[in-house]
Protein backbone atom coordinates (compact mmCIF):
# COMPACT_ATOMS: atom_id res chain seq x y z
CA UNK A 1 0.00 0.00 0.00
CA UNK A 2 0.95 3.64 0.23
CA UNK A 3 4.54 4.34 1.09
CA UNK A 4 5.45 0.67 1.20
CA UNK A 5 8.22 -0.24 -1.21
CA UNK A 6 8.57 -3.43 -3.20
CA UNK A 7 10.50 -4.64 -6.20
CA UNK A 8 8.86 -5.24 -9.57
CA UNK A 9 8.75 -8.96 -10.25
CA UNK A 10 7.27 -9.09 -13.72
CA UNK A 11 5.40 -7.02 -16.28
CA UNK A 12 2.39 -8.85 -17.67
CA UNK A 13 1.09 -6.21 -20.08
CA UNK A 14 1.13 -6.67 -23.83
CA UNK A 15 3.93 -5.60 -26.16
CA UNK A 16 3.54 -1.86 -26.72
CA UNK A 17 2.37 -1.07 -23.21
CA UNK A 18 5.17 -3.11 -21.74
CA UNK A 19 7.75 -1.22 -23.76
CA UNK A 20 6.20 2.05 -22.70
CA UNK A 21 6.33 1.11 -19.03
CA UNK A 22 9.97 0.09 -19.42
CA UNK A 23 10.90 3.23 -21.32
CA UNK A 24 9.75 5.24 -18.31
CA UNK A 25 12.22 3.32 -16.21
CA UNK A 26 10.01 0.69 -14.58
CA UNK A 27 12.05 -2.48 -15.07
CA UNK A 28 11.87 -5.82 -13.35
CA UNK A 29 13.83 -5.64 -10.15
CA UNK A 30 13.41 -1.90 -9.56
CA UNK A 31 12.10 -0.94 -6.15
CA UNK A 32 9.08 1.27 -6.41
CA UNK A 33 6.42 2.66 -4.13
CA UNK A 34 2.99 4.14 -4.63
CA UNK A 35 3.10 7.74 -3.42
CA UNK A 36 -0.47 8.72 -4.25
CA UNK A 37 -3.71 7.53 -5.72
CA UNK A 38 -5.76 9.93 -7.80
CA UNK A 39 -9.44 10.40 -6.92
CA UNK A 40 -12.31 8.80 -8.89
CA UNK A 41 -10.21 5.67 -9.40
CA UNK A 42 -7.69 7.68 -11.38
CA UNK A 43 -4.05 6.64 -11.85
CA UNK A 44 -1.44 5.69 -9.28
CA UNK A 45 1.60 7.87 -8.79
CA UNK A 46 4.56 5.52 -8.63
CA UNK A 47 8.04 6.51 -7.52
CA UNK A 48 11.27 4.75 -8.34
CA UNK A 49 12.85 4.62 -4.89
CA UNK A 50 16.45 4.85 -6.06
CA UNK A 51 16.07 7.75 -8.51
CA UNK A 52 13.03 9.57 -7.21
CA UNK A 53 11.56 9.58 -10.72
CA UNK A 54 7.78 9.61 -10.73
CA UNK A 55 5.35 8.14 -13.20
CA UNK A 56 1.58 8.11 -13.23
CA UNK A 57 0.05 4.91 -14.42
CA UNK A 58 -3.60 3.98 -14.89
CA UNK A 59 -4.87 1.49 -12.35
CA UNK A 60 -5.80 -1.21 -14.83
CA UNK A 61 -2.33 -0.99 -16.37
CA UNK A 62 -0.71 -1.06 -12.92
CA UNK A 63 -2.53 -4.29 -12.19
CA UNK A 64 -0.30 -5.96 -14.74
CA UNK A 65 2.80 -5.10 -12.77
CA UNK A 66 3.51 -8.00 -10.48
CA UNK A 67 5.35 -7.10 -7.32
CA UNK A 68 7.72 -9.32 -5.40
CA UNK A 69 6.83 -10.94 -2.08
CA UNK A 70 3.27 -9.83 -2.15
CA UNK A 71 0.16 -11.95 -2.02
CA UNK A 72 -1.51 -11.95 -5.47
CA UNK A 73 -4.77 -10.49 -4.12
CA UNK A 74 -2.78 -7.57 -2.74
CA UNK A 75 -2.11 -6.30 -6.24
Amino acid sequence: MEGETAAIHALHSDGATRKRIQSLGLFEGRRICVVARAPFSGPLLVEDVATGARVMIARDLAENIEMESRAPEGR
Binding site: A38, F40, M56
Partner: peptide, 19 residues
Protein backbone atom coordinates in the same frame (compact mmCIF):
# COMPACT_ATOMS: atom_id res chain seq x y z
CA UNK B 1 0.10 20.51 -15.95
CA UNK B 2 1.03 16.84 -15.47
CA UNK B 3 -0.26 17.08 -11.90
CA UNK B 4 -3.60 18.40 -13.09
CA UNK B 5 -3.64 15.49 -15.53
CA UNK B 6 -3.11 13.16 -12.58
CA UNK B 7 -5.96 14.69 -10.62
CA UNK B 8 -8.58 14.82 -13.35
CA UNK B 9 -7.79 11.56 -15.16
CA UNK B 10 -10.52 9.74 -13.22
CA UNK B 11 -13.15 12.29 -14.18
CA UNK B 12 -12.09 12.26 -17.82
CA UNK B 13 -12.45 8.48 -17.88
CA UNK B 14 -16.15 8.95 -17.27
CA UNK B 15 -16.41 10.94 -20.50
CA UNK B 16 -14.23 8.66 -22.59
CA UNK B 17 -10.86 10.39 -22.40
CA UNK B 18 -7.99 10.16 -19.95
CA UNK B 19 -5.10 12.08 -18.43
Amino acid sequence: LPRIAFMVDGILHRVGLHG
